[in-house]
């Protein structure tokens, strides 16, 4: 396990949290549409933070800005004080930002294990010429990476699927493979876009447990988008409610979810949201 990752504070700084992710004045316009408007977010190291809000509220767009797929119109994003906006997506991944996608985006022609190995890409160093050889540093690194990937799979209880082609797995499992792939990169900050959508109910509970376990045992910071309020309540320490790209409320789930503005904008439509949950997985635009 890498050093920078292990330095994630667990007990020592638990009382005096450091800010890991800081989003300031984030605004995203798509043509005339303002998808995110002047958003401030602060995610502390080691916490589980949930972004909730109705469909089209701009949640995925926020994640896209953080991982570098969308260039914001204005605002700043910092990871542990470092400005992210100047960096490309792959540099941000190397800094320790992991990511899952609303619609999976798995490498469907690969096995589960290979998906995880790509997830570790930025932690591997082998160059072109080393990679051509059957022995040497590249192969040693490769063997270690496979070992590590299997450990991650074992942790998630997926080890028996390691050599399966992801395309042959049921949708719920594919979702977990997406999480496993992100975890294989040993990120500091994991961005999860609706991890529970499309996952069978029983597995949702297990998933929530796993998320908490990764958070507690490894100090992994989580920023997740989730429609399933049970999951949100079970795992998130703080949440932020978005509506039409604006922040409606922020704070502890129990209090925030009682605020009238939130209830009116979002929770009043809960039934409808529940009904739409299943469909969204397939038809929403990627990440």
């Amino acid at each position: 396990m890498s050093d920078e990752w292990q330095t994630a504070p667990q007990e020592a700084e638990a009382h005096q949290p450091r800010t890991l992710l800081e989003v300031q004045g984030l605004t995203v316009r798509f043509g005339g549409l303002v998808a995110v408007a002047d958003l401030d977010l602060r995610v502390e190291e080691g916490e589980i933070f949930a972004l909730v809000g109705p469909n089209g509220a701009g949640k995925t767009t926020v994640l896209n800005c953080i991982s570098g797929f969308v260039r914001p119109s204005s605002g700043s994003i910092r990871l542990a004080g470092q400005d992210l906006l100047a960096l490309g997506t792959e540099r941000r991944a190397a800094l320790g930002i992991g990511r899952t996608f609303q619609n999976g985006q798995l490498f469907s022609s690969m096995t589960v294990l290979e998906n995880l190995l790509v997830g570790r890409h930025s932690r591997l160093r082998a160059g072109l010429f080393q990679s051509l050889l059957p022995i040497g540093p590249a192969r040693r690194e490769e063997a270690a990476a496979r070992q590590r990937a299997r450990e991650v799979l074992a942790w998630l209880g997926l080890e028996s699927y390691a050599d399966r082609l992801v395309a042959t797995l049921p949708a719920g499992l594919q979702k977990l493979v997406g999480v496993a792939r992100a975890l294989a990169g040993e990120p500091r900050l994991l961005l999860l876009d609706e991890p529970a959508a499309g996952v069978p109910l029983r597995e949702v509970a297990a998933l929530a447990d796993q998320l908490r376990r990764w958070n507690a045992e490894l100090g992994l910071t989580l920023l997740l988008i989730e429609h399933n309020m049970e999951v949100v309540q079970a795992v998130a320490q703080r949440i932020c409610v978005l509506n039409y790209g604006r922040k409606l409320a922020e704070g502890e789930p129990a209090t925030v979810l009682r605020e009238p503005a939130v209830l009116e904008a979002y929770l009043g439509r809960e039934e409808e949201i529940d009904a739409r949950e299943e469909g969204e997985v397939s038809d929403h635009a990627a990440g």
């Binding site: 797929f69 991944a93 985006q105 890409h121 591997l124 792939r181």
Partner: peptide, 24 residues
Amino acid sequence: RSRIGRAWIALRDSEVAAAACGVA
């Protein structure tokens, strides 16, 4: 079977996911 070949296949299967995994 190395990180390079996997990166190629990854960007074939999903460019966004490959980028998110750190593939330049």
